[in-house]
Structures are given as structure tokens and as C-alpha cells.
Design a protein around this nucleic acid. Structure first.
Lengths: 245, 245
DNA sequence: TGTAAAAGATAGTAAAACTATTATTTTTTT
DNA sequence: AAAAAAATAATAGTTTTACTATCTTTTACA
């Protein structure tokens, strides 16, 4: 299992100076990931970060316009990294269903990691995505941010999943909604298992959490994709809709 | 279509003085809903609210410990209101599947409203739930808040849905995850249709948005519930799992 | 070696999130 | 109706955050 060097390219609108290209920039990434993971976005400030890296607050502002932009930068880095892992692990696989399963594996974080970039703690970053990710777009500036490309990586990932779904079942009516639901459901169930266990059936036990989430995603995903097509001996009848009453 | 008087009871840990019992309290609710809907949680402050209602900041602090507690109070009010509408609309219905469909109707906001409480704008509150709701539990104090009952209304609603799912299919393995996924998927697709349309298949057109979301929820929900049970002429075989490869 | 860009150091502003104090009004009790 | 209690209003103050301005020093590199 080699650790391949993957180069993560993050959208230009998400920084003033590309942090991956300078020493200070990489220190900002490294320590902001660790600090946000430890204290959460609310308590994390540029002031605290600058002390932690023995730098000055204005220096950080030369890389990122504000805390929110840094946050979105980190999320994009994560989704680009997920996309890279998906590409790497699916490139030689013929079956679309098998490729989709690998995607579910990666978004549930149960796939073997095969990249390591020294200044990014991907596990801490994944915890940030699970705990804080929804805040990236749940605010009043979402439309302005969207125009600036803040959510491109996430949207591209969902589109990739939607295309896979359509490859498996070209008649499926909700490929985009299914894609976003799968990603959100992965994060939610990981989070709920740890903090609001009555909202999930997966258990935070024995290091099997991400595998359980993957099983859940497969069950939901393939259930939805095939449900209305394979009832009654494969005839395309809306059998279920009549069974419901 | 009578407007029934429904009394919404919110968990005691969510306020210092019950705002529904005093004039100032009701003014706080009324104007905070309107202001949060207009400016979002980030821009909303107790200072601005106190000016708006010609009161003083410390007076508001005697009702709610802080902005976050007020926010969670409003969300709980909303989920209690949803639960009340569900109870009202399902009480005389025999079929569990029909009851579940009514639940989906209410959480997608496409059911006829049948309550009106003069000082709460339920449509504005629903927009707040869709746009800001996830922030209630995505932070580092989630466990402490959970112990204080901040999420009781939401968890009870999900449990009610999970019980309905089990009533329809007692063998279903993920009732809680399905329940939370349905509620989250309802909110997400309403939000995506308006702000991130590439993440959903429903369209924000012609006042049919909530009906489209309801159709989506039914498709996902009943697809998942029945998928693995009714393949191959109703035999309980894991046909789909073998079809996937 | 010289120049430009980056980084560091220091200081400052505006607003938010509270808290404390005191005065006034309203409500309740006797 | 008067006294006591509770709620509200008014004012002022503290700490922290988010951000800006300015100036000096260091580093990169041509």
C-alpha cells in the first residue's frame, strides 16, 4: 500500500495567497485544522491561530479574507481529496455498481487511505467536515459565495455520484437528490452515532462505525435505485406505489 | 378548514421565563422570528432585537440565557408544532403507510396548515428551520445541550417516524436513520432548490416546490422500506444485493 | 547586491456578547 | 388602598472578536 503523492488543487477564489505554496501558508493550514478540530469553529479565531504559530494576525489575513473563507478552503481541500481518492480507486473498475460502492466507501471514510500530505491531518479534517461542514452554506451569503465558486468541489463530487447512479439506472428520476442525500447521510450518521444516538441505528463501537455507515449507505442507495424497477419479476411497474395503500 | 387552537409546549430548559406567558416574551418571539428570517442568525443580535421592540437588552437576557438558547427555543417550538399537526392529521387513519405519507406531507410543508398562533409567523419560522436548523447541533457544546434536553422535540419526532416505519415493515433494519434522513432530506432539498440547484432534482418553480419534495420523500422512503422485501415475488430475499454486482 | 514581496510588530476601531446597577412601572398580596 | 414583590427600563461598563492601518524587518531571487 504505497502512499501516493496526490496534488490537491483548491479553487482560486478561496484564498488571497495559495497557502500550499509557502511555509507560513502550510503552517496556517496545519494548525487551523488541528485547532478547529479541537475547539470548533465558534471558538477558533485568527488571533489564537497567530499565537499558536508564532505569527501575527495581519499575516493570516493576507492569506484568507476571513475565518469563513479559510473554513471553506479547508472543506474544499477535503472534497478535492475525496474526489482524488475516488478517481484513484475506481479507475480500473468496469462495473458502475462496483464503482458506486467504492464511492460510498470513501465518503463513509471506511476505505483505505492512500495519500498523505504532510501538513494536513486528514482524519482531523474529516471530523471537521462531519461536525462543521453544514455551516459552509447555511447562511445568508450562500448565493454570493456560490457565485464565487465556494461549493464547486462539493457540487462536482455530487454530480459524479449522480452520473454513476444514472449509469446504473438511466430511468432513475432523482440522481442529484440521491447523491447529496448520500453524502449528507454519511456525515449525519457518523455525527449522530457520537452525539445524538437516538437519531441513527449505527453504533459508535469497536472501530466499526465507518463500516456500519457504509453498509447503511449501500442499503439506502441500492434500495432506492432499484426499488421501483425490479419489483414483480423485473417489469418496470410502479408496484410499490400501489402496495403502500 | 378551521384554524384549531393548538397549544405549543416547549421544554423548560430552553428559557428562563416562559416567553409565551408574557407580553414582552411574545414580542421577543414574534420579532426574533421575523428578524432571523430576514437577516440570518449571524447578523441577528439581542441589541438589534431590543431596539426593534423598544425594550432593553438586559430584559431579553432575563428570558433567554443567550442568542443560541433563543434559537433552539424557536426550533423546538417548530418541531412541537409539526408534531401537533401530525397528530391532528393522522389520529383517525388506520393504515400506517397512509399515516407515514401524511408525516412526509407535513415535514415537506405541503400539508394544509391548520393552526395559527397570532404571535408566530410559521412560514418564516419554517424558512429559519430550513436555512439555519443544522446549526442547532453542529458545535462543540452538543453533548451538554443534549443533556439539557435541547433536542428533545426533534428526537421525539424522529422516533415517531421510526415507529411508523417499523409498523409498516417490522424487519426494516434502519428505522432511526431513515427517519432522520427523511427530515434532513426534506429540509436540504427545499434549501438546495433555492440556493444550490445542482444538488437536487426538485425545482423552485410555480409554487410546487413543497409538493415536489413530498414526491421525492415518498419515492425514497417507500423505496427503501420495501426494496429488499418485495423483490422476487414477495419472498424475503436479498435479491438486490446480488443484482448490484 | 539590490529590490520587491512577504512577514512581523504594534496599535487601534467597531461591534457583539454579555453583566452590573439603579430607577421605574406593574402586579400581587394583605 | 397601601405595601411588598416582581418585572421592566435605562444607563453604563467589560471582554472578546473581527478586522484595519502603519511601519519595520526579513527573505527570496534576479
Amino acid at each position: 500500500m504505497n502512499n501516493l503523492i496526490i496534488n490537491i488543487k483548491v479553487h482560486e477564489g478561496l484564498y488571497l495567497i495559495d497557502p500550499q505554496t509557502t511555509k507560513l501558508g502550510r503552517r496556517i493550514i496545519e494548525h487551523s485544522v488541528r485547532m478547529i478540530d479541537e475547539m470548533g469553529m465558534e471558538c477558533f479565531t485568527f488571533g489564537k491561530l497567530s499565537k499558536e504559530i508564532n505569527s501575527a494576525e495581519p499575516s493570516i489575513y493576507r492569506y484568507f479574507e476571513n475565518k469563513h473563507q479559510l473554513f471553506v478552503y479547508l472543506l474544499n481541500w477535503y472534497w478535492e481529496w475525496v474526489a482524488a481518492r475516488i478517481n484513484l480507486n475506481t479507475m480500473n473498475i468496469e462495473s458502475a455498481a462496483k464503482r458506486l460502492k467504492i464511492v460510498l466507501d470513501v465518503i463513509a471514510d471506511s476505505a483505505k487511505k492512500n495519500s498523505s500530505i504532510e501538513f494536513v491531518d486528514e482524519e482531523a479534517l474529516h471530523r471537521i467536515v462531519v461536525q462543521e461542514g453544514a455551516k459552509a452554506y447555511h447562511h445568508k451569503k450562500v448565493d454570493a459565495n456560490n457565485k464565487e465558486g465556494f461549493f464547486l468541489a462539493y457540487k462536482q463530487l455530487c454530480e459524479k455520484i449522480a452520473d454513476l447512479v444514472l449509469e446504473i439506472n438511466p430511468n432513475f428520476p432523482y440522481p442529484r437528490s440521491l447523491a447529496s442525500t448520500l453524502v449528507e447521510t454519511a456525515n449525519n450518521n457518523l455525527y449522530f452515532a457520537q452525539h445524538l444516538p437516538r437519531l441513527t441505528d449505527v453504533k459508535d463501537e469497536e472501530n466499526r462505525l465507518s463500516q456500519s455507515v457504509k453498509d447503511l449507505l449501500e442499503y439506502f442507495c441500492f434500495g432506492i435505485i432499484y426499488a421501483y424497477d425490479f419489483t414483480k419479476n423485473g417489469k418496470h411497474e410502479k408496484t410499490l406505489l400501489s402496495l403502500q395503500n
